[in-house]
């Protein structure tokens, strides 16, 4: 009687007098899969090495995922279990005068490697930060306007944009009025996007109405709170 295989791990199943023949094959399979597959960072094993529900751990970076088998195609996708990720970037920009809430997207210029986890300058695209995977994120923006405007009716404003959407400023903007000293803004936003969406950029919105150009330090930190 010929041998068969178990459905997930492909363990060899012999019968009757050939039972002993299973061991040499199956111990190796169990040895490989027990505790999860360990791979180099960024490595995706070929489908032939996976099974539905296989735990894959990426060495050194803390990421791990479950292999999800598509029952129709037989191919595998990743369901992230752990994904430590944070990226921070900053810039000094010159903001033209408009309305206190006349927000415009301004670009970040430099990624701070000391405040990055599993991220680098490749996450900064077009002056905005790009989340790596679908999940729940927290964005935090700090600004520091260097020019003191003491007259009434002058405002310095900051907000966080999602996917270039200026409209979401109404969810998180911080508008500060005139001050004889420097003005700071703090904005935060917890947000998500669906797995069907491509990861979209997260950027900085600024506005001021002093009547002249004003320079400001901006600092945006993006953190993955939970993979989906």
């Amino acid at each position: 009687m010929s041998a068969t295989n178990s459905s997930r791990l492909k363990l060899r199943l012999e019968s009757d007098d050939e039972l002993v023949d299973q061991f040499a094959t199956n111990w190796h399979i169990l040895d490989k899969f027990a505790g999860g597959l360990l791979v180099a960072p960024g490595t995706t094993p070929p489908d032939s090495e996976l099974y539905d529900g296989c735990l894959v751990r990426e060495g050194a970076n803390g990421k791990s995922w479950l292999a999800v088998r598509n029952p129709l195609s037989g191919t595998y996708s990743k369901s992230w279990l752990t994904y430590p990720w944070q990226c921070a970037a900053y810039a000094n920009v010159l903001v033209g005068s408009s309305q206190p809430d006349g927000f415009v997207v301004y670009g970040l210029s430099t990624v701070d490697p000391l405040r990055c986890t599993n991220a680098d300058s490749s996450a900064l695209v077009g002056g905005q930060l790009i989340p790596p995977i679908p999940g729940i994120y927290q964005a935090q923006l700090h600004t520091r306007w260097s020019y003191a405007d003491g007259a009434d009716g002058i405002y310095k404003s900051g907000a966080i944009s999602l996917n270039g959407n200026v409209g979401v400023r109404a969810w998180n903007c911080d508008i500060r009025r005139k001050n004889n000293n420097v003005v700071t803004n703090f904005c935060a936003q917890i947000f998500t996007f669906s797995p069907s969406e491509a990861p979209y950029p997260v950027g900085v919105l600024l506005a001021q109405n002093s009547g002249g150009n004003r320079d400001v330090d901006i600092d945006l930190t993006l953190t993955l709170l939970s993979p989906k």
Binding site: L9, L11, L30, D52, G53, L55
Partner: peptide, 13 residues
């Protein structure tokens, strides 16, 4: 073998 295949390795969906 069947039991190891069902629940031991990886996750149970």
């Amino acid at each position: 073998w069947e039991r190891l295949d069902t629940s031991f390795a990886g996750a149970i969906w």
